[in-house]
Design a protein around this nucleic acid. Structure first.
Length: 221
DNA sequence: GCGACAG
DNA sequence: ATCTTGTCGC
């Protein structure tokens, strides 16, 4: 797929913060999805040589049957350090390389990391969604910000994730008695709809099939 | 100033 | 993220 860059990637942390403060107002948290959803993609990262090389993997699955349709892998030098709150500036360049090679344009992308559940409401899922103009969901394995109450241990239960009186996402149990995931809107999707798709992409494991497969590609080779 | 801190 | 074997629990 074709991708039009929106800004440079060799940035200082201050410049990155300004970009977040600017682009955050373009994020849409209402449902603007193509109907029906035919393809769902998962994105994941891996690193080599002490983190100096970034590896991005994309897995496109058919929906709702979740059959593997296409995969893509890209490598490039890492140019931005890992700083909590600025993950997208480290990972997105390689992700765009991998997405450019994809033939099957996904209707929805599940990202590894937060959506608006972010200090400036602009996590990696929002950033990627804006750049490629495809609906995205933030699916994180751990907490960045926010507070929440304990949730039931059965699959499907969830509680709101709150920051400064605002609901920024949910903590969702995708598998009974297993550590929950942190879900938030990325771009062009509402929270209830995001929860629905995450559950529909999750079968017998904690992680959605999309990210599980991308995960394998990114870490195996 | 002191902790917390996606991957 | 990554370095790494066996082991505990459902």
């Amino acid at each position: 797929m074709k991708i039009s860059q929106r800004h440079a990637w060799s940035l200082t942390v201050d410049e990155a913060r300004k970009i977040q403060e600017t682009l955050r107002y373009e994020v849409i948290t209402e449902d603007k999805l193509k109907q029906p959803i035919q393809y769902v993609a998962g994105v994941d990262m891996g690193f080599e040589a002490d983190g100096t090389i970034s590896r991005a993997a994309v897995a496109v699955l058919s929906f709702p049957d979740l059959q593997l349709q296409e995969t893509s892998l890209a490598r490039r030098p890492t140019t931005f350090p890992y700083i909590p709150g600025f993950l997208s500036f480290r990972e997105i360049p390689a992700v765009l390389d991998a997405l450019e090679k994809i033939q099957t344009i996904p209707d929805l992308i599940l990202c590894d990391g937060q959506g608006i559940a972010h200090p400036r409401r602009f996590g990696i899922a929002c950033h990627l969604g804006l750049i490629v103009d495809i609906p995205t969901i933030g699916v994180a394995k751990s907490l960045l910000i926010g507070k929440y109450e304990d949730l039931p241990e059965t699959r499907g239960s969830c509680v709101p994730l709150i920051d400064k009186e605002e609901t920024i996402g949910v903590v969702l149990r995708t598998r009974t008695k297993v550590k929950p995931l942190y879900i938030s809107s990325g771009h062009r999707i509402s929270l209830p709809t995001a929860i629905d798709y995450v559950l529909r992409c999750t079968t017998k494991y904690r992680l959605p099939e999309t990210t599980r497969i991308a995960d394998k590609l990114a870490s195996s080779k």
